[in-house]
Amino acid sequence: MNYLIRTNWWKWVVMILLVYTIVAGLVMAVPRLPILNETIRNLHFHVPMWFGMIFLFGGSVFHAIRYLGTKNLKYDAYSKALMDTGLLYGVLGITTGMLWASFTWGEPWSNDPKQNASAVALLIYFALMVLRGSLNDDQQRARIAAVYNIFAFAVLVPLLFILPRLTDSLHPGNGGNPGFNAYDLDNNLRLVFYPAVIGWTMLGFWIATLKSRYLLLEIKRDA
């Protein structure tokens, strides 16, 4: 985060990648698949939200651990900013998923294992937000939130990546056989999908740097 706050060049990469994602994602040929039809293009918009959320939460727990090691409130600010942005991405992911599912799976919520697991994961992080809000002492809040953050991330990984794969899921790549081939990702889709994931994820980090700079100013004001 230190480096991202200091530098600007990567913002141009974000802008180029996202413009490319929109143009190529809507223009390029996609595989003609039953049920999905044209909505396969959501792959470039819905799925990167979850990738972004994982990276943002990963960054958040990384800075939480750094805070525990240094007791420097700066890292707590980074951790908080990344967590907030990750939650935004998670909420966008779940709502876009419900919209997409209404057209492909017939209903917004089919109690799909991955849907349920991601809802539980988001609730865990919302609880962390409430927990933060209920504590007034800076150091105490940072310490408790950091420890909770580690547990939350430790639960998030099995919830999203392991449990849905143990049962049948409507999501591709689940139900025993993980992997990208199950997405029917052909090379045309990959050409847009990977830049889309990088672009959307880095946009999240961009928003998080702005938020953490604001939080750092707050810390300076109170000091």
Binding site: K11, L18, V19, I22, L26, W206, I207, L210, R213
Partner: peptide, 22 residues
């Protein structure tokens, strides 16, 4: 595409300006 790009451009501009203000 043009409409989405305009919206995206507006969002980028806002983020850049917010960064400058900070």
């Amino acid at each position: 595409i043009a409409v989405i790009l305009l919206i995206l451009g507006g969002i980028f501009l806002t983020l850049l300006r917010l960064g400058k203000k900070l």
